[in-house]
């Protein structure tokens, strides 16, 4: 099976090493990965702001670039959620339907499609604070949510990371409360957004993690910005980096 790698715009610009880790990890697992170089963005920043007219051309471009692949994988729960559940700005082309059906977040692809549970090339003997995005939890059902008190507790990101020898998870308060990123919300409501980020960091830091890990780099972009402003130098990693064998 050939897999098209979708690297979200913000990862392309700010966190290319996350794109590299995702690519290397997939290659390591024997996946035939192609990277369509015409790709840009899924249009979420505009659509999420209500500006669906301004999201149309970008969304249609995305569908053209990726609409012929049997499988599209992206290291972003948020982009996957947008493509799967909110791709309504552009025309309903056959390419778009294919893309909507065939897009997976990296965690879903590893956990549900390839069913990988062990990452023996990686070791990570550190205490991790794992943050899973709201898009991943409540949009993609990637982990159980605290609101549904009778549901079985599960977490696909945690199940994957548990396959890395040495890793230890710390528990912290309000584990699935939103970190405050929220896309354009981070700017339109910057004061509330930042306070949510600070609070999230405070809850995590109380449990003294060695680093903060997430399958969503956009949450981390926000949390890292908050941490650096507060002169906290705790490292941040995308899940793909850990699974690919990064060392602290």
């Amino acid at each position: 099976m050939q897999v098209a790698l979708m690297v979200p715009c913000y990862i392309d610009m700010f966190y290319p090493h996350v794109g590299v880790a995702t690519l290397e990890l997939l290659e390591r697992l024997g996946v035939d990965v192609v990277y369509p170089e015409e790709q840009t963005c899924c249009g979420q920043p505009m659509a999420n702001s209500g500006c669906y007219e301004e999201a149309r051309a970008t969304e249609e471009h995305c569908a053209r670039v990726f609409g012929s692949f049997d499988c599209v994988v992206t290291p972003s729960g948020s982009c996957t959620h947008h493509i799967r559940n909110k791709f309504t700005a552009g025309v309903d082309s056959p390419e778009k339907k294919t893309l909507v059906r065939n897009t997976y977040d990296l965690v879903e692809f590893l956990h549900d499609v390839l069913k990988i549970r062990e990452f023996p090339w990686a070791t990570f003997e550190h205490k991790v604070a794992l943050h899973t995005s709201c898009s991943a939890i409540r949009g993609l059902n990637m982990a159980s949510m605290s609101e549904r008190v009778h549901d079985a507790v599960f977490s696909k990101p945690k199940a994957l990371l548990s396959g890395v020898p040495g890793i230890e998870f710390i528990e912290f308060e309000r584990v699935d409360e939103c970190c405050g990123f929220g896309g354009t919300f981070a700017a339109t409501e910057e004061a509330v957004s930042a306070m949510m980020g600070y609070d999230k960091l405070t809850f995590m830091q109380k449990a003294s993690p060695d680093c903060i890990v997430s399958p969503d780099m956009s949450c981390l972009m926000h949390l890292q910005g908050c941490a650096r402003r507060q002169k906290q130098d705790i490292p941040f990693y995308h899940l793909a980096e850990i699974l690919n064998g990064v060392s602290l």
Binding site: F14, Y15, G19, R229
Partner: peptide, 20 residues
Amino acid sequence: AWGKHRDVPEAARETFHEWY
């Protein structure tokens, strides 16, 4: 608005596109 309470992420020296 981003930078009021948060540091702005640094643009990478090389984008993923370029790296690829």
